[in-house]
Design a protein around this nucleic acid. Structure first.
Length: 579
RNA sequence: GAUUUGUUAGCUCAGUCGGUAGAGCAUUUGCCUUUUAAGCAAAGGGUCCCGGGUUCGAAUCCCGGACAAAUCACCA
């Protein structure tokens, strides 16, 4: 397939050819030794100028200012940007000034990756700059980058189109500094959590992503097929049941940063694949887990932001311990005035009606209560708040409450009106667990397609005996959103899911040669505006002749004018579609 | 899935009432030895997202489609 290239791409490809002709490999194989980064030069040069008299650095050219025998450009490495100063007679001390006159001034472009050696100095304008002694082309860039300029904090022509930023995240990362910061912080959050767990002696583990039964959560799974076994497999919607099997196996604490997959809608808080941290600790209950979660979050926020407060969308959120705690039924009472404790399903349905909430027959007690909470209460919890003691129907994997068997020992952590974490005193009674799964099955028969599948092997594991255990899961993407002030999940995922991009099929001169057009003319047909063979064949021969010969004259082609009988021949040749 | 908005040069965007498609940056050429959103002078660069319709004439009006964003629905 030939490419239709923009003028700027052609210029760069020509520069590439010229580099080869000068004996310069634009993609050299050798390692390039780097002794300094932009950041450490800028931070340390003034205090220790003698340390920077012979340095090497590599990076991408982000801007160029060319004068006669001197030029400046900005070099960007992973730590930041620094200015380079090229002076012709310093770069080319001998007679041959090609490296400066041709390569630096003409063949380098914004986006090229180069390495330089030289010494650091300060310009008359007061900018710390590298005076370049040698320059090596490390990678020629063939596509122009978006040009983002900045002066005194004001950004001009920012690269902001969300579609392009997400589809070409590499470009986004190159030209938009803050994007890199967001992702670095994401990794810091995860590292901070990992350190916290490891310090307690918990074990990081990996469990299957391809599961024969998609258990542990109620969600629509992605289905795939294993050829050798000839069975369906599901991408996990959760890893909970596998981690609990490991607790049965005798580990005291296990955790996993897991990619889970749910075949559901996408919006600014949902991506089909997302990251969840799940941790299970033996001999603990949900009260312990609340303390643990608070302590972990407070520490993570302090480590990552330096304080306990973050601002999201103008709202300040304080992660200072302790977080508020309220039982879900109290929360509903507080925000709706209805006391739904112990209320049977038909009365709950009435309450929903009075509150103006839609219900459908597939909803059991649990879903109805969840609906009321979600619609009427959730948004009130902006500061970190533990919502506790959910009704048993909503929580099939959670142990019944020690004081009230209609409730469970569960909490969700709400922050900024969104669920961030979910935790249980885990159900370890195999008889009750089986009964709860069966209850889920009957919900499923009523049409709730989110009810859970029964995992018989998991029940078998419980029958061998699982110690009392508390488990907790945190949506990492949403936590990172909070801690980076982002309001859309796409901003915290390097490569968010997008609809496939439609690639316009480029027409190749071959397509015209196939119908008998001479090689000399084929490429000019495309440039003259014929974008498909069909469109070309629909045109009248006289019109084509006029257009082509007009094009020939305008572009001063070194070709004989095209004759009518030749065009007639092209138009009557059947297209050979074989490739 | 619904509604709204958007899609014009490599990038960011104008484009009046339907009448030959524009700017800044970037690119090319020339000048310039410490510039910095470098400057000065000139030039080139377009499938106006795609397909239909209305019209003498469509970037512009109408219909359909693609993609994106926002809001909603969905989402323990």
């Amino acid at each position: 397939m030939s490419l239709i290239l923009s003028e700027q791409e052609l210029v760069r490809r020509n520069a590439l050819t010229e580099l080869y002709q000068l004996g310069i490999n634009p993609y050299p194989p050798e390692a390039y030794e780097v002794s300094a980064s932009a950041e450490n030069i800028l931070l340390e040069f003034e205090a220790n100028p003698e340390k920077f008299q012979e340095i090497s650095i590599a990076g991408r050219i982000m801007s160029r200012r060319i004068m006669g025998a001197a030029s400046f450009c900005e070099l960007q490495d992973s730590s930041g940007r620094i200015q380079l100063y090229f002076k012709r007679d310093d770069l080319c001390p001998g007679e041959d000034k090609t490296l400066y006159n041709t390569v630096v001034k003409r063949l380098l472009d914004i986006g090229d990756i180069i390495g330089v050696t030289g010494f650091v100095f300060k310009t008359q304008m007061g900018e710390i700059t590298i005076h370049v002694k040698t320059m090596t082309v490390l990678s020629k860039s063939l596509r122009p980058l978006p040009i983002v300029k900045e002066k005194e904090g004001q950004v001009y022509d920012a690269f902001t189109d969300a579609e392009q930023r997400y589809r070409m995240r590499y470009v986004d990362l190159i030209v938009n500094d803050s994007v890199k910061e967001t992702f670095i912080r994401r990794t810091k959050v995860i590292n901070s959590m990992r350190n916290f767990f490891n310090e307690q002696g918990y074990l990081e583990v990996e469990t299957p992503i391809l599961q024969p039964i998609p258990g542990g959560a109620a969600a629509r799974p992605f289905i795939t097929h294993h050829n050798a076994l000839d069975i369906p497999l599901y991408l996990r919607v959760a890893n909970e049941l596998y981690l609990k099997r490991l607790i049965v196996g005798g580990f005291d604490g296990v955790y996993e940063f897991a990619k889970d997959f749910r075949n559901e809608g996408m919006d600014r808080t949902h991506n089909p694949e997302f990251t969840v941290l799940e941790i299970y600790v033996a001999y603990k209950d949900y009260l312990w887990m609340m303390d643990f979660t608070e302590a972990m979050l407070e520490r993570v926020v302090k480590e990552v932001t330096g304080g306990t407060k973050v601002i999201v969308n103008g709202t300040e959120i304080d992660f200072q311990r302790p977080f508020k705690r309220i039982a879900i039924l109290d929360a509903i009472h507080e925000h709706t005035g209805f006391d739904v404790a112990g209320m049977p399903e038909n009365e709950l349905r009435e309450v929903c009606k009075k509150l103006g909430l839609e219900t459908d027959p597939s909803m059991g007690r649990g879903k109805l209560i969840d609906e009321i909470f979600g619609e009427k209460c959730e948004s009130h919890y902006v500061q970190p708040t533990f919502i506790t003691d959910y009704p048993v129907e909503m929580s099939p994997l959670c142990k019944r409450h020690r004081l009230n068997p209609d409730l469970t020992e569960r909490f969700e952590l709400m922050i900024n009106g969104k669920e961030i974490a979910n935790a249980y005193t885990e159900l370890n009674d195999p008889i009750d667990q089986r009964a709860r799964f069966e209850e889920q099955m009957s919900l499923s028969e009523r049409g709730d397609n989110e009810a859970m599948f029964i995992d018989q092997d998991f029940l078998r594991a419980l029958e061998f005996g699982m110690p009392p255990t508390s488990g907790m899961g945190i949506g990492i993407d949403r936590l990172v959103m909070l801690l980076t002030g982002q309001t859309s999940i796409q901003e915290v995922l390097f490569f968010p899911q997008m609809r496939p991009e439609r690639i316009r099929k480029a027409l190749s001169p071959q397509d015209f040669i196939r119908i008998g057009v001479s090689e000399a003319w084929a490429e000019h047909l495309i440039k003259a505006g014929y974008t498909s063979v069909e469109a070309f064949k629909d045109e009248k021969a006289a019109v084509i002749q006029q257009k082509l010969n007009g094009y020939r004259k305008k572009n001063k082609l070194d070709l004989p004018a095209v004759q009518m009988d030749e065009i007639e021949r092209w138009l009557t040749t059947p297209e050979n579609t074989a490739k």
